[in-house]
Amino acid sequence: MPTTNDNHPQTVMGRVLLLLEPFRESAGLTLTELAARTGLPRSSAHRMLLQLVGVGWLRRHGATYHLGPKMVELGSLAQNYDRVHRAAVAAMYQLHRRTGSAVHLAVLEGDELLYLEKIGGRWAAAVLPTHAGQRRSARETTDGAALLACRDGGAPAVREHVAGQDRGEPVHCVAVAFNAGHGEIAALSLTGPAGRMPESAVRDLVAAAGLVAARLGAPSGLLAAGGPSA
């Protein structure tokens, strides 16, 4: 993408994308915060923010900007029509009901993982700082370690990991990466308080991964699982 001498994107779309990117990590941001994070002049940032509010991509409450209804709608449509998400979501709800654990669906993009879905109850909402649409370094999570092992040709395996403390209670996570077809690698994972995950959890997770792979028309064999904590 062409840039100006100060490394700011030159095209209008480039500047818009630069302005929207910080909302990946923050639900609400002020003009001052957005200008600081993007390096855009306040006047330019303010002008674009007003335009984005006008078309519904952003909304403003007081001095704080949030993603608007149009962005939420488009994001929901993208999620609903994503082939991996559609193939996995029913199995994810079943896994959550059977195990009581939080269930994540992620795909690998370069050296990052992208969460496509998170299903869990109050514990997951309070303890796990993850959400659909979030990107993280693949090397930081169990899901990512499984995805990388799968991409790099690791041997089939299931490795559970217990780490971290939630009010004195360790967190238990296990992930399974599988072939999603069309050159994509996906992972399903279970995360919950250690000691509360049922004995059948790993077996149920592996079965669910095989079912999703079959729905996607990909080989159903388990490819890789395990790594650091979620």
Rank of each mutant, 00 (worst) to 15 (best):
N5I: 07
P9C: 10
V12H: 14
R15Q: 13
V16C: 12
V16Y: 08
P22S: 04
A27G: 05
G28N: 14
G28M: 14
T30S: 15
L31S: 09
L34A: 03
A35D: 14
A35V: 10
A36E: 15
S44N: 06
S44W: 03
A45N: 07
A45F: 06
A45Y: 05
H46P: 05
W57V: 12
L58K: 12
R59N: 07
R60F: 01
R60H: 02
R60V: 02
H61P: 00
T64H: 09
G68D: 08
M71G: 03
V72Q: 14
L77G: 14
H85G: 05
A87L: 06
A87I: 03
A88H: 08
V89P: 04
Y93V: 13
Y93N: 14
H96K: 12
R97P: 00
G100V: 00
S101F: 02
A102R: 00
H104P: 03
E109N: 07
E109A: 06
E112P: 00
L114Y: 05
Y115G: 00
Y115S: 01
L116R: 08
L116T: 01
R122N: 06
L128Q: 14
H131Y: 13
H131S: 11
G133Q: 01
G133Y: 01
Q134L: 14
S137W: 07
A138E: 09
R139G: 09
T141D: 15
G144L: 10
L148A: 08
D152A: 09
G154K: 09
A155H: 15
A155T: 15
H161D: 07
D166A: 15
D166P: 04
E169Q: 15
P170L: 06
H172K: 05
H172T: 05
V176E: 09
V176R: 02
A177K: 07
F178E: 06
F178C: 08
A186T: 01
S189Y: 00
L190K: 04
P193R: 15
P198H: 07
S200R: 08
A207Q: 15
G210S: 11
A214F: 04
R215E: 15
P219T: 01
G221N: 11
L222R: 02
L223C: 05
G226Q: 06
P228D: 12
